[in-house]
Amino acid sequence: MRLEILTLALIVGACTWAFRFFPTKADLSTIKPDGILARFLASTGPAAIATLFVASVLPMLKADLANAGVPMPLACGTLVVVLTYAALRSVVAATLAGSVAYGLAVWLL
């Protein structure tokens, strides 16, 4: 393993740990619900989900774009996530439904 990759992994790991650990120790009872810190903390969940989605989808898209198409399981899973979330406004239900749709598409196709 190259030293640059190991260094990057350690830095990212330490920052991720700090970002998850320190908010649990902070006294958040004094912040305003509509303040900038509250808005920042509320936006980190969706930002993390979007980042993980892009990181997991990008390799599939790169591989299939060379074959002139978007993989059907990816399209099915993403569509079901969006539709389920639009209908139910539940991240949990949308995630589970998208996973099931992706799995079924892989199995059937």
Results as ranks from 00 to 15, higher is better:
residue 23 P to R: 03
residue 24 T to E: 08
residue 24 T to L: 11
residue 25 K to G: 14
residue 25 K to M: 15
residue 26 A to I: 14
residue 26 A to M: 15
residue 27 D to L: 13
residue 27 D to C: 13
residue 27 D to W: 14
residue 28 L to T: 11
residue 28 L to Q: 09
residue 28 L to N: 08
residue 30 T to L: 15
residue 30 T to F: 13
residue 31 I to E: 08
residue 32 K to M: 12
residue 32 K to R: 14
residue 32 K to C: 13
residue 32 K to F: 11
residue 33 P to A: 11
residue 35 G to D: 07
residue 37 L to H: 04
residue 37 L to Q: 06
residue 38 A to Y: 10
residue 39 R to D: 13
residue 39 R to T: 14
residue 40 F to H: 12
residue 42 A to G: 14
residue 43 S to L: 12
residue 44 T to M: 14
residue 44 T to R: 12
residue 45 G to N: 15
residue 45 G to W: 15
residue 45 G to Y: 15
residue 47 A to Y: 04
residue 49 I to R: 08
residue 50 A to H: 01
residue 51 T to Q: 11
residue 51 T to N: 10
residue 52 L to T: 05
residue 53 F to G: 14
residue 53 F to Y: 12
residue 53 F to K: 05
residue 53 F to E: 07
residue 54 V to Y: 01
residue 54 V to E: 04
residue 54 V to M: 07
residue 54 V to W: 03
residue 56 S to A: 09
residue 56 S to M: 06
residue 57 V to N: 02
residue 59 P to C: 09
residue 60 M to C: 10
residue 60 M to V: 09
residue 60 M to P: 05
residue 60 M to D: 08
residue 61 L to C: 04
residue 61 L to F: 00
residue 61 L to P: 01
residue 63 A to S: 12
residue 65 L to V: 00
residue 66 A to F: 06
residue 67 N to L: 11
residue 67 N to S: 11
residue 67 N to A: 12
residue 68 A to F: 09
residue 69 G to I: 07
residue 69 G to V: 06
residue 70 V to A: 08
residue 70 V to G: 06
residue 71 P to G: 02
residue 71 P to R: 06
residue 72 M to T: 13
residue 73 P to A: 00
residue 74 L to E: 02
residue 74 L to K: 02
residue 75 A to V: 13
residue 76 C to M: 14
residue 76 C to W: 11
residue 76 C to R: 04
residue 77 G to W: 07
residue 78 T to W: 10
residue 78 T to Q: 08
residue 79 L to A: 15
residue 80 V to W: 05
residue 81 V to M: 13
residue 83 L to V: 09
residue 84 T to G: 05
residue 84 T to E: 03
residue 84 T to N: 05
residue 84 T to P: 06
residue 84 T to W: 02
residue 85 Y to G: 01
residue 85 Y to M: 10
residue 85 Y to W: 13
residue 87 A to E: 03
residue 88 L to A: 05
residue 88 L to W: 00
residue 89 R to W: 00
residue 90 S to L: 01
residue 90 S to W: 00
residue 90 S to R: 02
residue 90 S to P: 01
residue 91 V to N: 10
residue 91 V to K: 07
residue 92 V to I: 12
residue 92 V to T: 12
residue 92 V to S: 09
residue 93 A to Y: 10
residue 94 A to L: 01
residue 94 A to I: 04
residue 95 T to F: 13
residue 96 L to T: 13
residue 96 L to I: 15
residue 97 A to Y: 01
residue 97 A to E: 01
residue 98 G to M: 05
residue 98 G to N: 03
residue 98 G to K: 06
residue 99 S to T: 12
residue 99 S to I: 14
residue 99 S to Y: 10
residue 100 V to H: 03
residue 101 A to P: 04
residue 102 Y to M: 11
residue 102 Y to L: 14
residue 103 G to Y: 07
residue 103 G to P: 07
residue 103 G to I: 02
residue 103 G to A: 07
residue 104 L to E: 05
residue 104 L to Q: 00
residue 105 A to V: 02
residue 106 V to F: 02
residue 106 V to W: 04
